[in-house]
Simulated scan of single mutants.
Amino acid sequence: MLPFEASTWLAILGQYNTAIWPLHGIGALLALVAVGLVIPGSRAAGRVIGLLLGVLWIWTGVAFFGGSLAPFHFASEWLAGVFVAQGLMLVFALTLMGQARFGWPGRLGGGAAMVVIAHAFVGYPLLDAALAATPWTQLQYVGVAPGPVMLLTLGLLLLVPSRPPLVLAIIPLLWALVTGYMAWGLGQWLEFLPAALGVGAFVLLLLRRFGGAARAGPRPGV
């Protein structure tokens, strides 16, 4: 069971949003730039995307889990470390190693990526505000909160046309599962939607990575 109730979770988000204002705008701008850099499709653009995503994960780990959540959750330091580790992995794999080029992967993958990314930017706050009457100060916003950062990352990984780096999707998948658990534990049923989107995005990444390899078949002479 979670060590707090839904009202406490919302109060934590409210305190966090108040403390970091107006950095929400910077977080959203960095996220928007990362999405826009998919269009050039160059390796250099992929390096910048990795850097921007890394910054967002590290910020969320340090400021949210290591700061605002720390007095309320016994595992907050561990969660902060996991988010920082994900940020460092993104920077290492995409920025330093340049392991992925981004671009349009096709109708299914591209459409799914757009749905996931759109929910990270607008679906998360708008649905909670409209359907759950959550105050604007207690919503999760892209670039600075764990749920939208998770969806943004998985959506962008879906925009790697060939051999998406699955290792970079494992921690986002785990947070999607945690989001589903929190939805059940706190009675916040709208949180099942981002959890399902996150798990679905990971399944698509698996299918594209291994399904594509299977369709390609063995190399000549093997």
Rank of each mutant, 00 (worst) to 15 (best):
L96Y: 10
L96E: 05
R163D: 11
P105Q: 07
L88T: 02
A214E: 07
F4K: 00
P220A: 07
S42P: 13
L154F: 03
R107Y: 11
V82C: 08
V149L: 06
L168K: 07
T95G: 07
A132Y: 10
A100F: 04
L23T: 10
I117Y: 08
L204E: 01
F202Y: 14
I12T: 06
G27C: 09
P164Y: 10
T8M: 12
F210R: 11
V62N: 09
R219E: 14
V35H: 02
F64V: 05
D128Q: 14
V35E: 01
A118G: 15
L177R: 01
A216Y: 01
M97D: 14
A11Q: 14
Q188R: 14
G41A: 03
L159D: 03
P146I: 09
F4G: 02
A80E: 02
I49D: 05
P125N: 12
G106S: 14
R209Y: 06
A133N: 12
L158E: 02
A44T: 09
V38P: 07
G111C: 09
L207I: 12
Y124P: 01
T18E: 14
P146E: 13
W184H: 14
A118V: 13
A19E: 11
F74W: 09
P194H: 07
V122R: 13
R163E: 11
F202P: 00
G81L: 03
I58Q: 09
T60F: 06
Y141A: 05
A34V: 03
G212E: 07
W78F: 13
Y141F: 15
M1Y: 05
A196M: 14
A28G: 10
T134N: 04
